[in-house]
């Protein structure tokens, strides 16, 4: 769902770019506070154990391990986004990963992770226009991770962890598609209602795959190390 240059009115791209920049600044502040927090450092001592073995000299800490965990999740989602799966009649879809990142890392770190991926894709792989990077960050990182996280947070109380994550994953894709359609329509690129119908119908299907991949990866990570996911959630 990476919007290329040329699809979005420059005024809208600037506006959403500024909104994304503001939201990202907030996310950075939240994550910075988190990695520096001694309370969480203690609570999460189990997660932040052994970074020391790599450099051999540096002492372990929660802060740098959390950021390295962000990096590992980011590289996994980057790789997974390359995996285009066939949907219907000559269409493919791929993971967006906003909910996946947010469930593992929390909404703020999740947003930073997806934004970093979108930036690398735009700068090096011509995947998503550089001029509309802020729009793509708004649709996939902010709606995906922050919006998706709070849907997950609300629904998991009602239906449990995996169904909650699945519903949030599906909704995050459909919401991102709706936002994209709205941006295209308001930019005058194509008629709004037609674009909305087309975007929603194809992404309602892609969203099912998003939900399936999200809970599969969460399940896998929980099997490997439950703490990777739960440690954060217990403190939310």
């Amino acid at each position: 769902m990476h919007i290329p240059n040329g699809f979005i009115d420059p005024k809208m791209a600037t506006g959403l770019g500024l909104a994304s920049a503001g939201a990202l600044a907030y996310c950075f502040a939240k994550v910075k506070a988190l990695v520096a927090s001694p309370v969480l450092k203690e609570a999460l001592a189990g997660v932040g154990k052994t970074i020391s073995s790599i450099s051999g000299k540096a002492r372990s800490s929660f802060g740098d391990t959390f950021i390295i965990k962000m990096g590992a999740v980011a590289s996994l989602i980057f790789a997974a986004q390359m995996f285009n799966f066939p949907v219907a009649q000559g269409t493919s879809g791929h993971l967006l990963g906003g909910v996946l990142a947010a469930v593992i890392l929390g909404p703020w770190a999740g947003t930073i992770v997806i934004s970093a991926i979108l930036t690398i894709q735009s700068l090096f792989f011509a995947d998503g226009g550089i001029l509309v990077l802020g729009v793509n960050i708004f649709n996939m990182a902010i709606i995906g991770s922050i919006g998706g996280y709070y849907i997950y947070y609300g629904t998991k109380r009602l239906v449990g962890f995996f169904p909650g994550a699945a519903i949030a994953a599906w909704l995050s894709v459909v919401a991102a598609a709706a936002a994209t359609a709205l941006e295209l329509g308001l930019s005058g690129t194509f008629e709004l209602i037609e674009t909305m119908k087309a975007m929603l119908s194809v992404h309602a299907i892609i969203g099912i795959a998003e939900a399936a991949i999200t809970i599969a990866v969460l399940g896998l990570i929980m099997t490997i190390d439950r703490k990777l996911i739960e440690a954060f959630n217990n403190n939310e």
């Binding site: 769902m1 990476h2 919007i3 965990k69 590992a72 999740v73 590289s75 996994l76 980057f78 790789a79 997974a80 390359m82 995996f83 285009n84 799966f85 066939p86 949907v87 000559g90 269409t91 493919s92 879809g93 791929h94 598609a177 994209t180 975007m199 194809v202 992404h203 892609i206 896998l220 990570i221 490997i224 190390d225 990777l228």
Partner: peptide
């Protein structure tokens, strides 16, 4: 493990990913 997994996924995706246009 997550890191190793991501290289595995990148490798698999390179071979099996659909070349059809994505939703948008």
């Amino acid at each position: 493990f997550i890191l190793v997994l991501s290289f595995g996924v990148a490798l698999t995706a390179s071979i099996f990913a659909s070349s059809h246009p994505d939703g948008l």
